[in-house]
Design a protein around this nucleic acid. Structure first.
Lengths: 188, 188
DNA sequence: TTCGTCATGTAATGGGTTACATGATTAC
DNA sequence: GTAATCATGTAACCCATTACATGACGAA
């Protein structure tokens, strides 16, 4: 997750850790927040793996005088490749709230085909969740306490809204790529 | 989190692990799902801590013949105390999506005062999130790409809805507190 | 000169998940 | 008699957080 986010952000421009974290916050809003305690170790790991390099490393003078200088990271060719891999590697955990947000945030660098798989997978995921709420509310509205009821009512409403939202996004995707719906059942 | 949920559920009735997990699912919907890989170790830990006991333990005959019998756990007095502690121990992490859902699910066993702190804390939390989205959308609507924009628009809308929902819950709490449904001593 | 913010990091820990392994019970 | 589901558990790992520690630098 963090790896994807870091590589994605460095696609825009070289940055140092502190900056990266602020951009991360701005980009992902409250969907996902990362702390320095995970960011810096990740940066080191990515550097060791050759996916990013310290752009300011050649500036040895500054290093000597300033034991705590900014370390500006930039993507390597391998890093770009890795990002492309991660962004298109769509699996069950991609549908999670947190993961989905990150993936969506990098959609402009995601191939159209992967975008579709992500949106549709997410929709299925949220639809299942929605059905869970529906059945709870339908089955036993009078046996569960007021608070649990509220919780599930809210959950149901949110799921319904998100499904509608996803439908719009999917429709837009289809329209943009002139890939008309083949044999789709009509969506609400 | 799991500890709170387990103790809370065992408040209702004694149960074994498998059952517990299903009830957990039913109670929390998709807000939080726990796997057996965390449930069983937790049960063991709680048992060692004396917060729950194996109700079927005295049934030594079954144990001997059946190496894999159901283990029905029930709350001890210490367990009830611990639950009361956890449910009223309101801190910054209580406002998280997952935590909040669990707390809400056990509101009927939560003192009114703690309920208020949780609801108001959650509201503040969501309001802050909302402001984050608002400023992103207001500040730079034209610099961010379509997808990030959608993400934040959705986030803003959800936050707004949740704040309204919380306001209603809070209003309801206040009304009930000032005007107790039964056994009411008159207002000052 | 001290305060706030920028900036980088580490150690300990947390709170789970996945995958796997096994056995018991029920329904067909 | 076998497939599904009920039921319990373990080992390995994952991905992060919290709390802490250090240090640079500009502004009041």
């Amino acid at each position: 997750m963090l790896e994807l986010a870091v590589l994605g952000l460095l696609h825009e421009a070289p940055m140092h850790g502190y900056e990266l974290r602020k951009r991360l916050h701005a980009l992902l809003g409250a969907f996902r927040a990362f702390s320095y305690g995970s960011l810096y170790p990740t940066l080191r790991r990515l550097q060791l793996a050759g996916l990013i390099t310290d752009e300011s490393a050649q500036d040895a003078v500054q290093r000597t005088w300033n034991r705590r200088a900014k370390t500006v990271y930039k993507l390597t060719a391998d890093g770009k490749e890795r990002f492309a891999e991660l962004v298109a590697d769509v699996g069950p955990q991609t549908w999670d709230d947190g993961s989905f947000g990150i993936h969506l945030a990098f959609f402009s660098r995601t191939p159209a085909e992967a975008r579709m798989r992500i949106l549709e997978g997410r929709r299925r995921h949220v639809e299942e969740r929605r059905e869970g709420f529906r059945s709870t509310l339908g089955r036993a509205s009078e046996q569960i306490d007021r608070y649990t009821l509220e919780l599930h009512r809210m959950g149901l409403e949110s799921s319904e809204r998100e499904v509608r939202w996803l439908n719009e996004l999917i429709a837009h995707e289809r329209a943009e790529h002139e890939d008309p719906p083949s044999s789709g059942r009509p969506r609400d």
